[in-house]
Computed example of a mutant assay.
Amino acid sequence: MPETSDSPGLHTMVGPKIAKVNVAQQLKMLREEAGLSVTSVADAMEWSVSKLTRIEKGEVSIQPLEVRALLDHYAVTDANLVAELARLARTSRSRQWYSRHRLAGAYADFVAYENEASVIQAWQMLFVPGLLQTSDYARAVTARTLRADPNDEQVRARVELRLDRQKALFERMDGAEAPRVVAILDESVLRRPIGGRAVMARQLDHLLTLAEDDTKFALGVAPLDLEHHSGLGGSFELLKFSDKSHTDVLFVEGAAGRDFLLADKGSTDRHNALFQDLLDYGRTGDRALQMIRSIRDGMQGD
C-alpha cells in the first residue's frame, strides 16, 4: 500500500491499543486541518460532543463506517488513507485477553500497551517484576502488598492477571516478532525472601532459567554498593514499540493504586537515560547471573 502519511502506526501492523491511539490522533489532525470545530463535527454526525472528544482522545474505539463518514465530512479524498484508517479502526475493536479482567485507568492502558511492546525495560527496587515472577512468589508478594491472606479473592485476581500477562508474553515470544524483556533488579530484591527462603530460591532459579535465552531476556543487577546509582527515584517500566508505531510509554506504579502512564518525550527520554545508567554502572551479563546464582545458593543452603 503506498504511503500517504508519515504518522506513526499507519501502514504498520499494530495491535488494538496502538491502532486506537493512531486512529484518534489522525482523526483529530484531519479535523483540525479541515478547520472544523468539535461542536460542528458532532452536530453534523448527530453525535454528542463527548463522543467525538473521547474518540479523539483514544478513550473509545470507533467503527470503520464512522471513520469513513468522518473522513467524507473532512473532504479526505485519499482512498488509501481512508482504507488504512478504517482497517486500524477495525483492529482497535478486536477483543483481547485482558478484557475479561475489567481493568480501568492507567493500569488498563499499561497492560494493553505492554501486550504490544517490542521491548520491555523494567527497573525494580522492591520485588521481582511481575512478568518474571513465579506463581508462588506472585501470591506471596501480592498478599504482603495488600496485607491479606494469599487465598483472598483480590489477591487471587491480581495474581491471575499477572500470570495471564506472562502467558501472553510467552505466546508472543513464540511468534515471528518476539518481544524482548530487559530487567534490572536492585540487589535487595534478590536477597529479600518474600514467601520464605524456599519460594525465593525457586524464584531466583526461574530468573536464571529465563536468562538462558538472551535473545528474549536480559537481566541486570544494581549492587548495594553501587555509587553511581541513577535508579533511586523509584521503580518503573519503559515500553518500546516496533518501528514508529508509537512513542515510548513510561509506567510508574504508585502507592494506593495511583498509577502513572506517561508518553511525553521529556519523561521517556529521562527514564531512558536512567535505565542506560543502570546498565552502564550496574552488573549485566555473566556478572549479573553470577550474583543471582550466589544468592540463590545461599537461599538453598540456609
Rank of each mutant, 00 (worst) to 15 (best):
A183W: 06
D186I: 02
E160S: 15
D152T: 07
P150K: 10
I184T: 07
V159M: 07
E177I: 01
A183F: 05
D149G: 04
D186R: 04
D152H: 12
P150L: 14
R180A: 10
N151E: 15
E177H: 12
G175M: 01
R156P: 00
A157L: 03
Q154M: 10
V181S: 03
R180N: 02
R172F: 04
R156Q: 15
R180Q: 14
D149R: 10
E171D: 13
V182M: 03
E171Y: 01
G175Y: 01
Q154D: 15
Q166A: 08
N151I: 01
A168Q: 12
D164Q: 13
V155L: 08
P150Q: 07
D149F: 07
V155R: 04
E153G: 03
D186T: 02
E160I: 02
D174W: 00
E153Q: 10
V182P: 00
E171F: 00
I184H: 05
P150V: 11
V155G: 09
V155H: 05
R158M: 15
A178E: 09
R180I: 07
E187A: 08
R172K: 14
A178Q: 13
L169P: 08
K167G: 07
G175W: 00
F170V: 01
R162D: 12
A168D: 09
R165G: 10
R156N: 11
Q166C: 05
F170D: 09
E187C: 05
Q166L: 02
E187T: 06
P150F: 11
R162P: 12
L161A: 08
R158A: 12
R172L: 05
P179N: 11
R158I: 08
V159E: 06
P179D: 11
A157C: 03
A176Q: 13
F170R: 12
D174M: 03
D186C: 04
A178G: 06
V159D: 08
E177A: 09
A168Y: 04
D149P: 06
E171W: 00
Q166W: 06
L161H: 11
F170N: 06
V182T: 10
E171S: 11
D152E: 11
M173T: 00
E177L: 04
E160L: 11
E171R: 12
E187V: 08
E160F: 01
A168S: 13
E160V: 04
E153M: 03
R158V: 06
E177M: 02
P179W: 09
R180G: 06
E153C: 00
D174N: 13
D164P: 05
A178D: 08
R162H: 11
V159G: 08
D186S: 12
A178L: 02
R156I: 10
V181R: 01
R156E: 15
I184G: 07
V159R: 02
E187D: 08
R156F: 00
M173E: 03
V159P: 05
R156Y: 00
L185I: 06
R165N: 05
P150Y: 09
A178V: 01
D174P: 00
V182W: 15
R180L: 07
E153L: 07
P179R: 10
D149H: 14
A183Y: 05
A168F: 02
E160N: 14
R172V: 01
V155Y: 04
L161S: 10
V155D: 09
R158Q: 15
V155A: 07
A157F: 03
L185S: 06
L185W: 03
R172N: 09
L185C: 10
R165S: 07
G175F: 00
R172C: 03
N151T: 14
A183C: 06
